[in-house]
Design a protein around this nucleic acid. Structure first.
Lengths: 160, 160
DNA sequence: GCTTGAAATTTTAGGCTTGAAATAAATACG
DNA sequence: CGTATTTATTTCAAGCCTAAAATTTCAAGC
């Protein structure tokens, strides 16, 4: 059919428009989170992300594990952990048996600071996604799984 | 009912998880686009965004219009337009009647370069959102409208 | 014509991010 | 053992981004 190609063409444009809208929405939410972190807590999203990762692993994470987990470069976490350490929120601990490696771990002060941040963070998200019911979320969530599945396939493909 | 608060609590956690998944998906797609732009075209997403905005306005945009449109700072577009200008893709044109202002406009070379980028871009997005049908898109799109509506309300609220 | 305040833009200081180069330590192997 | 490769991490150069300060020009009111 001659119609099929035209429909495909239209779908492609529709997807592009959706992507732009999705990007705009997510960036807007992210911008608000950054603003809140800065204005209400004097911190930044990357710092929050690092603290959040470390909070999940009370025994600490090696620098390389941290960068893999957060999907950022090694050099990146070096700088962020440096500053969190200066602020007394994170500690570098030597790994016994491997003098190359170090584990980053939240200090008690860092843990307390994170817990306060996390509670506020959840509230912000809740407000920003106000009006999204459980059914909406389930539907979108499964759609996103398609995207994430593709992404993890690519990673393993690139890792050859 | 005692049950209501618990349900609300659970919904809040569910929304947070959705947000994290959404962020991961969008960031993953964005990372792939950046990679493609870099590896296949030797350019970057911010440059593409500026060119894309200018392509929509053949008569050009004032620097301030450009930063408003892209929702980035004035200083930011200054730097990007500087480099695009060095590369001969963009031109700064004086605005008659206002010696403060300048209009940024794509050169013919810039327009040609953008059109090539844009075609590839659409293809990438199409592949990345493969499996999203028109109905899926419509559903998500209307949900995102809620988010965007809230965002635009906030803007006007902050602008007081 | 002056002065004052607003507007358009650039500059600056500081933080984030990356990919690639540099270090240093561990491991493999001949 | 000694050399070579791999692994963990940091350093570096370059680009992106922001908020705030500085510059230049415009516009209004006296």
């Amino acid at each position: 059919m001659a119609e099929t190609a035209a429909k495909q063409e239209a779908l492609s444009k529709t997807r592009l428009r959706l992507w732009l809208k999705l990007l705009k929405s997510v960036n807007g939410i992210e911008a608000e989170i950054r603003r809140n972190l800065r204005d209400q807590h004097g911190t930044t999203l990357p710092r929050f992300d690092v603290m959040s990762a470390l909070a999940r692993f009370p025994d600490g994470l090696k620098m390389s594990e941290l960068s893999t987990f957060l999907k950022v470069s090694n050099g990146n976490v070096t700088g962020i952990v440096d500053k969190l350490t200066e602020d007394g929120l994170v500690l570098r601990v030597a790994v016994p048996g491997d003098r190359r490696a170090q584990v980053a771990r939240l200090t008690p002060k860092g843990k307390a600071a994170f817990e306060e941040l996390a509670a506020n963070h959840e509230t912000w998200i809740d407000e920003l996604l106000e009006g999204w019911a459980a059914e909406d979320i389930a539907a979108l969530s499964s759609r996103l799984d398609l995207v994430l599945k593709r992404q993890s396939q690519e990673e393993s493909g690139n890792a050859k």
